[in-house]
């Protein structure tokens, strides 16, 4: 693929991506304002005291006394300068709140994703190569099991087994507070805390990728060019590597692209169970607190992540399958 062509493709896709992100922000902006109550009522509710003056002061402070279209325009204007606004509730710029918690979520979803994609594809390939045999059935059943189990329930059961009964792994948090570790000791500590949450989140997606990989492996294995290779006496291992796997990965990649956003959704549940300090939980708390700016900021971030991920998927597609032109 020529560099110029690639550049043109990227430019076109970027314009589209910006439009999509903008539309999502406007949509969510309107949507969350439909929720009953506002940040002032949450603060009143949690303080257990209020008077009309207090409520009015809060609403003025939050800029809620202006008409909604004006608030939207102000928000969009700020967005144009990449200013995600200020969380009055947390007394922090939204960008800072998100940047503080984004690494945790990226670590969690990234690890889960790697686990899911490598484990899933490996299992799928293994099953496909032994189709109809016990190993295939075992893998299929395993994948179905993870797929059919509520994600938070898996988390609870894992905690029950590995934290409560066996006492092997910590059940919550991202690292041991107060331990003041640094360097490798810190990384090891985080790693220990990461195991259960990423496993919980990863297993569900692992199941999906395994089934997907198996199905598409089988499908590709039936196709003419594979048969030809086999007839030519190419060793089976090489056929799998050179022909089948490469093509079978396509649907997995497509799907992973579409699913990027779902990982964030799942991380709300996992972050709740494991008290993982990420943006999924930040978003949920912001929703309950009607912390509009923070919530919109998180939506913006996930939308950008999804769009970027889809872009990467498209590029990867072109790499894996030379027949596909980036159009």
């Amino acid at each position: 693929m020529g560099a110029a062509k690639l550049l043109r493709f990227l430019a076109a896709r970027s314009v589209k991506a910006v439009i999509v992100v903008l539309a999502i922000v406007v949509f969510q902006f309107v949507l969350i304002r439909l929720a009953p109550g506002d940040p002032a009522s949450v603060i009143a509710g949690q303080s257990g005291a209020a008077d009309p003056l207090f409520m009015q002061q809060l609403r003025e402070q939050f800029g809620l006394d202006r008409p909604m279209h004006e608030q939207l325009l102000i928000y969009l204007r700020d967005m144009a300068t990449l200013d995600l606004g200020f969380s009055h509730r947390q007394q922090q710029p939204v960008a800072r709140l998100i940047l503080e918690r984004l690494p945790a979520t990226l670590l969690l979803t990234g690890t889960a994703f790697l686990l899911a994609i490598t484990g899933g594809v490996a299992l799928g390939v293994m099953a496909a190569r032994r189709v109809g045999r016990p190993a295939d059935s075992a893998i299929t059943v395993l994948a179905l099991t993870f797929y059919a189990t509520p994600i938070f329930w898996v988390g609870l059961i894992l905690v029950l087994i590995f934290s409560v009964w066996l006492e092997w792994l910590p059940s919550f948090g991202m690292f041991t507070v107060g331990a003041e570790l640094s360097g490798w000791a810190h990384a090891l500590d985080v790693g220990k805390h990461l195991i259960l949450p990423s496993l919980t989140l990863g297993l569900f997606f692992l199941a999906i990728y395994a089934r997907l990989a198996r199905a598409s492996m089988l499908e590709v294995a039936d196709q003419d060019f594979v048969r030809t290779a086999r007839a030519k006496g190419v060793p089976e291992g090489r056929i799998v590597r050179a022909h089948v796997l490469r093509n079978a990965l396509l649907p997995v990649i497509t799907f992973a692209g579409i699913q990027a956003g779902q990982l964030v959704g799942g991380s709300i549940l996992v972050e709740t169970v494991f008290a993982w300090p990420g943006i999924g939980r930040l978003a949920f708390d912001a929703l309950l607190a009607r912390d509009y700016a923070t919530l919109l900021g998180v939506f913006f971030c996930t939308a950008v992540m999804v769009v970027v991920f889809n872009l990467i998927t498209d590029l990867l597609y072109a790499v894996v399958d030379p027949r596909v032109e980036v159009a």
Binding site: P36, G37, P39, S41, V42, G45, Q46, L288, A289, R290
Partner: peptide
Amino acid sequence: TDVAGWVR
């Protein structure tokens, strides 16, 4: 309800 809705 949630807190905001309840208070409102």
